[in-house]
Nucleic acid binder design. Structure first.
Lengths: 120, 120
DNA sequence: TTGACAAATGAATATCTGTTCAACTATAAT
DNA sequence: ATTATAGTTGAACAGATATTCATTTGTCAA
């Protein structure tokens, strides 16, 4: 009957509360996607890359200079961001130019900054 | 002159772009705080805890049942959330009741979900 | 064609982080 | 007092992840 097999090591104390919350909770897949989204921008390097790209389209070398990091590590992170569909790239000669491909991220940044300035 | 000592392994390709972006970029401390905030909600378990607490105040046992996890792991995560000031607790008898202490987080969830439903 | 440079990539390393396990505290009930 | 339960905590472990290093690809210039 209970959806808890053996993972939970205690009995329910407030059954009605638990049932009510369970009814309203999104499914596991939704939480995984949501957490993945925040994990994506929950890294200083990627935060800075996205902020930089929000200001201007840039090639990997430019980004490496702005962030003061190696091209390789930037490239690795750009690959992550590309796979997640938040940045797009365009090749021109030897250089590869990156741009933001998702405006939701900027919105999240704005609220995040608001939160930070509001608290400590 | 350049703020890049030896960390960056390439020369600037578009100096004006780099300079412009550098001027607009927030400082390192801001990025760390921002990334920490997103890291905090960038975990499935913590996401689910916060969602649950947004529905109703709950004790650790209730949460353990809702998430189908051990009390210990829930308690560890609650400690993280407490330290970051997003949840608050209230003791009553043997039980400890947790509530949300930050409405910004819920806002972030909303935009995150919007993004997820919009994309895949 | 050769050399130089931008970028990507795979493997290895180091670090970080979530869960488990065991021990402990505190409160309530018998 | 003793027992049971709610919750916390620290250490250990396992899995994830960011950076480094070495190598490779592709493009431009000489």
């Amino acid at each position: 009957m209970s959806r808890n097999e053996f993972s939970c090591d205690c009995n329910v104390i407030h059954q009605n509360v638990v049932d009510n919350v369970l009814k309203k909770m999104p499914n596991e897949d939704t939480f995984n996607k949501l957490a993945d989204l925040f994990k994506l921008i929950g890294d200083t390097t990627r935060c800075r890359i996205l902020f930089a790209l929000d200001q201007s389209e840039m090639c990997v070398c430019d980004l490496a200079n702005v962030l003061n990091m190696t091209k390789s590590s930037i490239s690795h992170q750009l690959a992550v961001l590309r796979r997640s569909g938040v940045v797009r790239c365009r090749k021109s000669g030897k250089e590869v130019y990156y741009t933001l491909d998702d405006e939701h991220i900027v919105k999240l940044f704005e609220i995040g900054l608001e939160h930070i300035n509001h608290k400590g």
